[in-house]
């Protein structure tokens, strides 16, 4: 397909040469989330953030993959309810657009460690770029309840909450 056509020109006006060819390669999968991620997604459908605890060292993984990557043990069926509040560990102010990210620039990509979790979650923060900082306390902003599905998109973004910054020692291992 010529580029001209994609740009909405009438192909009958053959005033320009064809200089580009679109050759998309598309692969269509039926993705299976697996038992563990399915449990996590069914939780998020109910507005719950479910982690899982490693039976060896007690660390809480969120989202859980069903087994501990460090100790190679399964987590079983037990889950841990996590808060939708957390602490910003690191962040990046993004000023370059990406085809698959429909956010207005600049936006703030953040690594958040949720209260009660021992792993980080990547998300976006709705804030002025000047205000974001490590240790900042944040909370998830959810879609309206009637729009919740088995999707992480139920959480729109994080935003700052009026709590004192977390101590560096509390999140330094995630940096």
């Amino acid at each position: 397909m010529s580029d001209r056509q994609m740009d909405g020109d009438k192909p009958s006006e053959h005033d320009e040469d064809v200089t580009l060819l679109r050759v998309p390669v598309s692969l269509d999968y039926d993705y299976s989330a697996g038992v563990s991620a399915s449990r996590f997604l069914r939780g998020i459908e109910q507005g719950k953030l479910l982690g899982q605890r490693c039976p060896v060292d007690g660390r809480v993984y969120f989202p859980s993959r069903g087994s501990c990557p460090q100790h190679a043990v399964t987590f079983g069926d037990e889950t841990v309810d996590l808060s939708d509040k957390g602490t910003i560990v690191t962040f990046s102010i993004v000023r370059v657009p990406s085809a698959n990210i429909p956010l207005e620039l600049p936006y703030i990509a953040v690594n958040v460690v949720l209260d009660g979790a021992d792993t980080i979650l990547m998300h976006v923060l709705d804030a002025n770029p000047e205000d974001v900082h490590m240790g900042m306390r944040v909370q998830a902003v959810w879609k309206p309840r009637e729009e919740w599905t088995t999707s992480t998109a139920n959480i729109l973004y994080f935003r700052a909450i009026d709590e004192p910054d977390a101590d560096y020692d509390q999140y330094k291992e995630h940096i």
Partner: peptide, 12 residues
């Protein structure tokens, strides 16, 4: 397990 369609496309 939940399943969902997943399309991976390289827009060359």
């Amino acid at each position: 397990a939940l399943t969902a369609p997943h399309s991976l496309e390289y827009t060359y």
